[in-house]
Structure formats: C-alpha cells, structure tokens
Design a protein around this nucleic acid. Sequence first.
DNA 1: CCCCTAATGTGAACGGTGCATACATCGTAG
DNA 2: CTACGATGTATGCACCGTTCACATTAGGGG
Lengths: 201, 201
Amino acid sequence: MSQASAYHHGDLRAACLRAARELLEEDGSAGLSLRAVARRAGVSATAPYRHYADRDALVSAVAAEGYRELAEQLAAAHPAPSTPDDLAAVAVVYVRFALEHPALFRAMFAEPCDPTSEERVAATVVITDYVRGIVRNAFPGADPEALATTVWALVHGLAFLHLDGKLDTSTPEVVARQVRAAVHALFTVAPAARAPGTPPE
Amino acid sequence: MSQASAYHHGDLRAACLRAARELLEEDGSAGLSLRAVARRAGVSATAPYRHYADRDALVSAVAAEGYRELAEQLAAAHPAPSTPDDLAAVAVVYVRFALEHPALFRAMFAEPCDPTSEERVAATVVITDYVRGIVRNAFPGADPEALATTVWALVHGLAFLHLDGKLDTSTPEVVARQVRAAVHALFTVAPAARAPGTPPE
DNA sequence: CCCCTAATGTGAACGGTGCATACATCGTAG
DNA sequence: CTACGATGTATGCACCGTTCACATTAGGGG
C-alpha cells in the first residue's frame, strides 16, 4: 500500500484535486471549501496549503482539469471536423459536457480567469487552438480568427443558456437538436463570408 | 429629513439593494456580504433579514435590477431593430453592458436562476421576449423561437468570452467590431428574411 | 389622546469559512 | 547517523450567514 506513514499522506496534491472535484460535482460550488476538501482527504484543515496557495488556486486546478477533459471529449467527438455535421457533433458534445458537469463548467468560466494560473491559461489555449483549427479546416476561405470567435461564442452561449434554464433541457435529444440547428444555420453562411471583393466588415 | 428616528431606517429594503449593488460593482461578488451591506446601510448585521430571506434573495433582487437595466439599454439602443446593423448595434450594447458591469452580469447568469424568485424570472422573460420580438421583426419568414435562441446564444457567448478574457477587450471599439462582425455573419444566414429575388447585400 | 400590536431593528451566539503562524513529524541526502 | 527540507498539525484570528430572544417604534382602534 502507499499508506506512507499515516502522517505523511503520500500524494495529498492529487487527493485534494480529487476531493475538490467530487465536492464540486456533489454539492456545487458552495460545497467546495478547503476545509471540506481536507476532511475528505483525511487530513488537517491547513494541510492543503502546502500544495495550493489558496482556495482560488485549488479551483483553478480543478478548472484546468475540466478544460483538459473538455478538450479531450471534443477531440474524441471528431478529430478533424470539416463538414457541418462534424462541427455540429462537436458542439453537441460541448453543450452536453456543460450540462453533465454544471458546477465544474461554471468553475471553468464563472470567474474571471486568473492569468497567473499558467496551468489554467495553457488549458484554455488548447481549446482555442482546437476551435481555430476546426474552423481553418472547415472554412478554408474564411478568416479563421473571426469565425472561430463566432463559432465558439455560439456554442458557449448555447451551453450557458441551457445551464441557466433559459432553454429546454428536458432531454438530451432536444438539446442536441437545438444545438445542431443553431450550428447548421451558422455554417451555411461561411463560404459567402469571404467572397472575393467583399471587404472585411 | 427622512431621518426617521435613527432606529427605524425608513427604507432599508431599498438601501440594502443600493448598498449591495455598490459593493458588487466595487469589490466584485466576493465583496457582497450581507454584513457588509448592513454596515454600508448603517444598520445592524441582521437587520436586512427583515427584508430579504437570505443572501441569495438579495443577490436575486440585484440580478433582477440588472435584467431590467439591461433590457432598458437594449431597447434604448433600438426600439425595433430590423436591419443587420440594428441588430448588431443591440448586440454591441449587450456585450458592453457585460463589460461595464462584470460582477453584476455574472450575478445575473453565473448561478442557476432560482425559479422561486418570481421577480427574477419575470425580468428574464422581458429579455427573452425582446429578443424574440426582434427576430420576428427582422426575419419574418424564419422560426422565431429557434432563431432567437441562436441570436441570443451568440451574443451571450460573446459577452462571456470577453468577460473571461478569451477575446480582445483592449478597447471598446475592438470589442464592438468583433461583435458586429459576428452578428453580421449570422444574419446573412436567414434567406427567408429577404424578399424573394432580392439579392443579398 | 393613549395604548397595543405588528413591523422593524438590535445583540449575542453558533457553526462554518479562509488564512497566517508556530510547531511536530518524517524521508532522505550527506 | 544526523541534520535538513518537505510535509502535515494545532491554534488562533477575522469574517461570514443565520437564528433567536429582545428592544424600539410607528400607526391604528379605543
């Protein structure tokens, strides 16, 4: 066993992360307290401070984990989407992730992203690049930067509106259909967006 | 003077709302504590409980105020938008509101909207109807429900991505341009909006 | 006019929180 | 084997939300 010594935990850092994630999923953001994390890890209240500067650092770590998982699931949905259906499928996964992990998703976006958490910044860059890559691949003619913004904003907005109960979330199918419809609508526009002679904006 | 009696405040309910709003704008969500509100209102720590069941009720009230102000500003931007430029202008106002009142905007959307706060629900309905009305007006042929979702999601997503620092927010002009570009891209998608035979642009 | 009730504000107290500081324990390098 | 650095503990402070018993007062019915 990696029991260590009953004094030294062995891998408190990972244990804290796990506990924090669990508390987030179970009780929402309010349930995520450093003390609760410490209790769940079977350790004194201040022990986590050896591994995380403060509460924000912990939630940033959890958020970064969330970003990684999200990127993973997006990539798994389709490695290199190029058709409208591909892109819509990715969008559906994005929104589903938000609905399946509401508190985590909120932790990822609800606070102003602390730029001092390089782990967190790096994780978001992965997603940005992924979206940009998709757009570049699917809309060779368009301005990838601008279009990536549009696509991400659309999907991100859909996720949040669903989360806030502003949209029908009765069944996953309903949600998926709404998301697909919205993305398809956007998709048809792109080729014309960069028509020859059309000045940008 | 409306000094009342130095014991009874006079209009604590409104004073709490004002103080809460101020604290939110000054110190962000973290600074909004019931005790701080009470202090600012010059009243004992538990006095606000006479007017608000708990902290959540207070922030719900502040959020509702935010919804009303947002709806107001949107309507002021354009009473009945029908052209792409109109719609884009409204979107710009939406995003600007988020950037000018970040903590308030987050309070409005960061938590799952408590359906028991009828004041809050009513305030969001106003916005939903406004967006739907715009879409109905601007895209007579399209399904207003679906398109309203798409439009709102796009704008809402843009607002949040800006808030989270995922997009360039260096100057209001930059932001406005990005928002306009995104909305215009979406707009061209609704063929039904144009009379048959009318060439795009 | 006065008094009584209901509305409003107070004070103390409980359990919880984040965090700083001083101390204890232990693996490990020298 | 020993000393040191990393890790975990104990204690304490200030703050928080919330409850409860109590004080104050406004305003209406005698």
